Measured scan of single mutants.
Amino acid sequence: DLSALRVEEVQNVINAMQKILECPICLELIKEPVSTKCDHIFCKFCMLKLLNQKKGPSQCPLCKNDITKRSLQESTRFSQLVEELLKIICAFQLDTGLEYANSYNFAKKENNSPEHLKDEVSIIQSMGYRNRAKRLLQSEPENPSLQETSLSVQLSNLGTVRTLRTKQRIQPQRTSVYIELGSDSSEDTVNKATYCSVGDQELLQITPQGTRDEISLDSAKKAACEFSETDVTNTEHHQPSNNDLNTTEKRAAERHPEKYQGSSVSNLHVEPCGTNTHASSLQHENSSLLLTKDRMNVEKAEF
């Protein structure tokens, strides 16, 4: 173990290094160091905050020279020094078990990766560091076993998940096959086929009936047209017969005018059967003409 005197000496050296690497504005270890034209180094955030307070150039807090945003430059070497100082402080805390008085939040800088452990060898070769390295080497064999167990647990979990997924996939297939086998029997399929065939026959029977009705309507229309044509021909046949009657009536009127007047009046009210309204109107006109002729003949006879 380190003596108290040596611990104090190391602590004083760390404090001196820390004062050199402090920012003059925030009085902390410089984060993202930036250098000016006057070779003074500050935190990048502190300098941008200072420049944004005034429009135009501002003055350096140490030498009062003008500073602009374009004049600022990043210093990589200074950032490396800060990183190495942080590593020294971490090693000091691990070796002594004491917390550094002016320690900052170094938890963000710590890294437990194997590459980081290899890099620590180049920091300080001390008894405390050696003991700590031995402890780490002793704890390393235990870690692979834990990793193997965790991997086995994960693989077993994956296997159970896969088996569950396969079961879920197989179950719908089985149910679907069961439904297909038990849903419709052979008799049901035959009945469905016969039902479809009967429906098709009914459709075939319905369509000819409609065509037959249309044919019957067409035949009825044709018969009505033929009947009207026969009526017209009958009226045409009746007209010459009426003319013959008129000639006979004229002759009778010349011989017996008194008797014919009474008979002509009675004939006005008689309509021949089986004739249309057109034929009756023609008869009325003929009878009126005959009456006028008879009157003329009677007057001539009187004179």
Rank of each mutant, 00 (worst) to 15 (best):
S266P: 05
S219F: 00
L146V: 14
P114H: 06
L282S: 09
P61A: 08
H256N: 04
F42Y: 05
N267D: 10
H238N: 11
D39A: 09
L158F: 01
N111K: 10
S185Y: 02
K134E: 14
T36S: 15
T76P: 07
E9Q: 09
D188N: 09
P272Q: 03
R212M: 04
S156Y: 06
A220E: 09
N15Y: 05
Q171R: 14
L27V: 11
G128S: 06
L81I: 11
S71C: 12
T233K: 13
A16G: 10
S75I: 02
K54N: 08
Y100F: 09
V10L: 08
L245F: 03
K118R: 14
E236G: 00
K37N: 01
D95N: 15
L72P: 10
D231V: 06
E28K: 11
K109E: 06
A107V: 11
E271A: 14
Q147P: 11
V190I: 09
E202K: 12
I206M: 12
H278L: 00
D213N: 09
I20V: 09
P240H: 02
I25T: 08
P114A: 00
P172L: 04
I20N: 10
S150G: 14
R70W: 07
F78L: 02
L155I: 00
E236V: 02
Q147K: 12
C43S: 14
Q53P: 10
F42V: 01
P257T: 06
L117V: 02
S79R: 09
L29F: 01
H40D: 07
D200Y: 03
K19I: 02
E271V: 01
C46S: 15
S103R: 09
K55N: 10
V10E: 15
R212G: 01
A16V: 01
R212K: 08
M17T: 13
L81H: 07
Q93L: 12
D184N: 09
P24R: 00
A220T: 08
K19T: 04
F78Y: 04
A107T: 06
E84K: 09
L2I: 05
L217W: 14
T163P: 15
N15H: 09
R6C: 05
N234S: 04
S3T: 08
S139I: 03
S150C: 03
Q80K: 08
S219C: 12
I215M: 01
A279D: 15
R174M: 00
Q53K: 05
L245W: 00
A91D: 05
E148K: 15
N234T: 08
E83A: 10
E299K: 10
R162I: 06
P172H: 10
D231Y: 05
S35P: 06
R169Q: 08
K259M: 01
C46Y: 14
F45S: 12
E142G: 06
M17K: 15
S280I: 02
E229Q: 01
F92V: 10
D66N: 05
V265L: 08
Y260F: 10
Q18K: 14
A224T: 04
K49I: 00
D213A: 02
E22K: 04
D39N: 04
N105D: 03
E302G: 13
I41K: 08
K44Q: 00
P24L: 14
P114L: 12
L85Q: 15
A133T: 04
F42C: 14
F303L: 11
E148V: 10
V298I: 05
L50R: 08
N234K: 09
S113Y: 05
P24H: 08
H40R: 09
T96S: 11
V7G: 07
D213H: 12
L282F: 00
V82D: 01
D244G: 08
V298A: 13
C38G: 12
V82I: 04
A16D: 09
V34F: 10
G274C: 04
V198A: 00
T194P: 03
K134N: 10
A133G: 11
E83V: 08
C26S: 15
S288G: 12
P33T: 12
Q168P: 08
C23Y: 15
Y178H: 13
E120G: 14
L151F: 04
I89L: 10
E28G: 06
E140K: 08
V270L: 00
L158I: 07
K19R: 12
C90F: 08
E214G: 14
C46F: 15
T76S: 01
R130I: 11
P272T: 02
V13A: 01
F303S: 13
K118N: 14
T207A: 05
I89M: 14
L217F: 03
A4V: 03
S3A: 14
K300N: 00
P61S: 05
F42L: 04
H278Q: 03
S156F: 03
P57H: 04
I170M: 01
S197C: 02
A252T: 03
H40N: 10
V10I: 13
H284N: 05
